[in-house]
Every structure is written in structure tokens, then in C-alpha cells.
Design a protein around this nucleic acid. Structure first.
Lengths: 154, 154
DNA sequence: CGTTACCTTGACGTAAACGTAAGCTTGTGG
DNA sequence: CCACAAGCTTACGTTTACGTCAAGGTAACG
């Protein structure tokens, strides 16, 4: 599978080997990942098995690249919005492609459009829910004040 | 594009008045619920078992009240945002209380506040995600145009 | 050289959220 | 009266997303 770098205009120069001082943190061990992102090692291995992440191997150990980290962030974000890992995988493929064929690109583009519409619909719903809850809480506040007046708190 | 207009009761009892039923369609059978909300009967029974719904019983059968329907809508909405049924149950309790004791009210009020903050945070995140994806898609559009210009295929 | 500390790959366990199949009740119509 | 549709309960199956051992590799430390 031909790798494709992210289209992001990355500024920092990738500093490969650098003795063994404080890592240029371009590569992270599983433990560092765990601590940085608050997930378990099991989770990271699971995501790799599901092909959501693709850490490189140094011998037997995994080393997570900056690309893995970007993807992990998107995964965690997606999960907070109720997307399944499978759905997230689709999204990742979108964020990812840098040099696909036109047809592929167009297909992915349209997938992205649908996802965007999805997200916007979700936001509208969320706005409505926020409005509802706010109203509900205002009602609660009034009721509280009422009770407070009628029966002065201890 | 779910939902259509009010589905006609296909049962052969279009009797406008029947005995002592002063309710219009304030009560719905499980089948009507299924058709109205696009959930399965199993799901409705499951939600009842989990105490998210509390349909009344006519003999053995369930009859869902307008309260049940309001709650179901909130449940489905909550699910779309990745809340667990248990979390949703908490939320329902909030939307629900009409005459609790002061202490209870205050506690619930604060729970509501936290949920509201939660929702707002979620919205911010969602806004950011939308911005990202939009940008990504714009990049895709440019890339498409580029390919189109360079190789004006079919 | 042994111990410790991580890391690895299975493999099985689990909680959530239903699906599905079996078998019992009930009302309604031909 | 009997069949049949609709509901009901009970209970086991399924999928998703990991948790939790078990058994073993490897590198560094003392």
C-alpha cells in the first residue's frame, strides 16, 4: 500500500535518529501514547488490529508516528459523538488521502460531503437540545427561588 | 428522511367514540410506536426493562403515554450524540421532575448544569470538527479541479 | 546471571444494546 | 369453535469495544 503523507503544511523538520535523549517525540512508544492520550495499551493494539492505526515496528515493539497520533485524536473525537469505529475508519480515510486517483478522490469527496452534512445536522440538533435544556434549567431555577422564598433554607 | 405524516390507524375500528376513552391518541400501542418512531418492539420492551419508559398496562398489553413518547424522543436524540442509555436515564429524570423536594431539585438542577456544560463543550468540538472537515473538503475540491484541468477526461 | 520492567501475541471474558427464536395468552373474525 | 394475528415472557445469541489473564520475548540493571 503506497503511503501518502498528510497534505498538512507541516513546519517542523522531521529529525530522525537523535541518540537517545528526550525523543523528538515524532515517534512515541505505547506507554507514552497511553499517558498522553489517556487510553490503554489494549485499546491502541485493538485500533491497530482494526486498521485504524498503523504504528511502525522496531523489532517487536510498536512506535507510533505523528500520523498515528493525529488519527487517534480523530478517533477519540469521533467516539465522543457516537460514531462507531467502523464509521470513524471511513472518516480517517478521507482525512488521509493525499494522492489518490481522480475517481477515488471524487468518491471520497462525496463521502466527505455526506459526513459534513451529517455533522451539521448534528450540530443543529445539539443547538436545539441546548436550548431545551437551558429553558428547562431556567424553569428549575425559578422553581428553586420559589421554594426558597416560601420556605427559607436552613 | 424518516417519518411521514400521521399514519392512519389501519385497524377496522375508526369509531370516533368508544366507551370511556376520553383520550384522542394519547395512548399508543406498541405497534403504533414501532411505526411512528422506527424502533423495534424489542427495543421498546428493553427500554421499559431499563426503566427508561413506563407504559401502562391494559391487561397484559402495553400502552404508551405521551410522556413515554416524549421520553423516547429524548432517548433517540441522546443516542445520536453518543450518550449511553444509563446517562440518558439521568437526563430523563431531569426533564421530568415537576414537583420534587427542594434538595432533590437542587441536586437535579446541578446535574442539569453539568449536562448543559457538557453539551456546549460538545458543540464547540463539533464546530471545530466541521471547520476541519470543511477545510479538508476544500482542499479536495481544489485537487479535483487540478486533476480535471490537467487531464480533462470524460 | 538472575531479576525486574515493559512489551508482545493469543485467547477468553464482559457490558451494553439489542436480535431472534420458542412457547404461552388473548381478542377477533370467518 | 377454531384459526390466526398481536402481544407477552423467557432466554439464549450477537456485535462492538475493549478488559483481563497467560505465556513468553528482550533489554537493562545490579
Amino acid at each position: 500500500m503506497p503511503d501518502s503523507s498528510l497534505p498538512m503544511p507541516k513546519s517542523p523538520t522531521p529529525d530522525p535518529e537523535k541518540s537517545e535523549s528526550p525523543a523528538p517525540d515524532s515517534l512515541m512508544t505505547i506507554r507514552e501514547m497511553v499517558e498522553t492520550y489517556g487510553v490503554t495499551a489494549r485499546t491502541l493494539r485493538f485500533y491497530e488490529a482494526k486498521e485504524l492505526l498503523a504504528p511502525i515496528r522496531e523489532g517487536q515493539k510498536r512506535l507510533f508516528t505523528r500520523r498515528d497520533r493525529a488519527r487517534l485524536k480523530l478517533i477519540l473525537q469521533g467516539k465522543r459523538f457516537g460514531f462507531s469505529l467502523e464509521e470513524i475508519r471511513q472518516l480517517l480515510d478521507l482525512y488521509d488521502m493525499g494522492d489518490q486517483q481522480k475517481t477515488q478522490l471524487r468518491a471520497t469527496y462525496e463521502l466527505g460531503q455526506r459526513h459534513l452534512a451529517n455533522l451539521k445536522a448534528k450540530r443543529d440538533e445539539l443547538d436545539a437540545a441546548i436550548a431545551d435544556l437551558t429553558e428547562q434549567l431556567e424553569w428549575g431555577a425559578r422553581k428553586l427561588a420559589e421554594l426558597e422564598a416560601r420556605n427559607p433554607a436552613k
